[in-house]
């Protein structure tokens, strides 16, 4: 690991000043940043530790919703009562991430900002994501990579929390040297058409400070399902965050977001349209699930993900049917 300076500012002003330096990197739980540094994939000259900043570790009620600091750990999200009762989908997504040890350290903000896991990128290949001019996955080992929105770089976004926040219509508060702004969770992530080397809208020096979960409509219920290649501590082969508002058996609102299949969390408007106004049944679930993976373009070794994602959407919707008693 290259030598680096370390700073732990006590105020946001100081932190944003320090982060103006393009070679500085913000440090939260360090569960992604430190391995990236050890592998020589990022080489910041300074780490700006955010953990002394006030207010970034709190969970507060706001107008029927919740405001979460970016440094809230995944473990707290998983176990917080207010989240578990009002935003169960998010608690489920957090608990699906990684391992207990890593959830104790990993933060909400860090989970949204983590870099992709593509083994060509992580393995030091000069690929698009690393500023190079090729994607090695197309003719290579693409089992874990994108089936949607990929061309020309086929990373999948690794976050479990990201799809959940989009399904909950969350807002993300950002703080940069030039001030504060809010973006919708859905707009936080950028696809390969916008950038091949970054995964979020964060400008240099900008950090995530909070996430705001709005009050959910009445009859809201959601769930997060994640398929992995072992029982724990794996990134998603495919995942689905499904949030519905049900009135009797009728779907009034639906947000379906896939994880692990595209360079960003992948919202499925066609699937949502198939559900809204319909009675939630096996038939509508199957239709919505088929719509969710419309346009998928699998590569040589990841066609299984199409079936998998579709199956997970169906299963998630089945879980949300009123007689299943989920909420």
């Amino acid at each position: 690991m290259r030598p680096f300076d370390y700073a732990a500012p006590a105020t946001m002003t100081e932190a944003t000043q320090l982060l103006r330096d393009v070679a500085a990197a913000p440090l939260g739980g360090g569960t992604d940043l430190l391995p990236l540094m050890k592998d020589g994939l990022v080489e910041p000259s300074r780490l700006v530790d955010l953990r002394r900043l006030p207010g970034l570790e709190s969970i507060e009620p706001v107008a029927g919703g919740l405001r979460l600091g970016a440094l809230v750990t995944l473990d707290r999200i998983e176990s917080d009562d207010a989240i578990r009762t009002g935003f169960r989908l998010l608690a489920e997504a957090a608990s699906a991430a990684s391992s207990p040890q890593l959830r104790n350290m990993g933060t909400l903000g860090g989970n949204l900002c983590q870099r992709p896991r593509c083994w060509y990128f992580r393995g030091g290949y000069r690929c698009f994501r690393a500023g190079g001019d090729a994607c090695y996955a197309v003719g290579g080992e693409n089992e874990y990579l994108a089936i949607l929105g990929g061309d020309p770089c086929y990373i999948v976004h690794p976050s479990d929390v990201g799809p959940a926040l989009i399904a909950l219509d969350a807002q993300i508060a950002l703080q940069g040297p030039d001030g504060r702004r809010f973006v919708q969770a859905e707009d936080f992530f950028v696809g390969v058409k916008e950038s091949l080397t970054r995964e979020t809208v964060l400008e240099p020096g900008e950090i995530v400070t909070h996430v705001e979960l709005p009050a959910q409509p009445s009859g809201a219920r959601g769930t997060y399902l994640k398929a992995m290649d072992r029982g724990a501590w794996s990134f998603a082969l495919a995942a689905v965050a499904a949030q519905l508002a049900l009135d009797g058996g009728i779907v009034r609102d639906a947000r379906i977001v896939l994880g692990g299949v595209a360079p960003t969390p992948w919202r499925c408007p066609a699937a949502e349209q198939a559900l809204v106004g319909a009675t939630l049944s096996g038939t509508t679930a199957a239709l919505a699930a088929a719509r969710a993976v419309e346009g998928a373009q699998p590569m040589s070794r990841n066609a299984y993900k199409v079936d998998l994602a579709r199956g997970l959407v169906e299963r998630a919707l089945a879980r949300l049917m009123p007689d299943r008693g989920s909420g």
Binding site: R117, W119, Y120, E141, R230, G231, A232, W233, S234
Partner: peptide, 14 residues
């Protein structure tokens, strides 16, 4: 491509 214990998967307790 997977010379590490992140991508070389060994069983977890589960």
């Amino acid at each position: 491509l997977n010379p590490n214990l992140d991508e070389y998967k060994v069983p977890s307790a589960l």
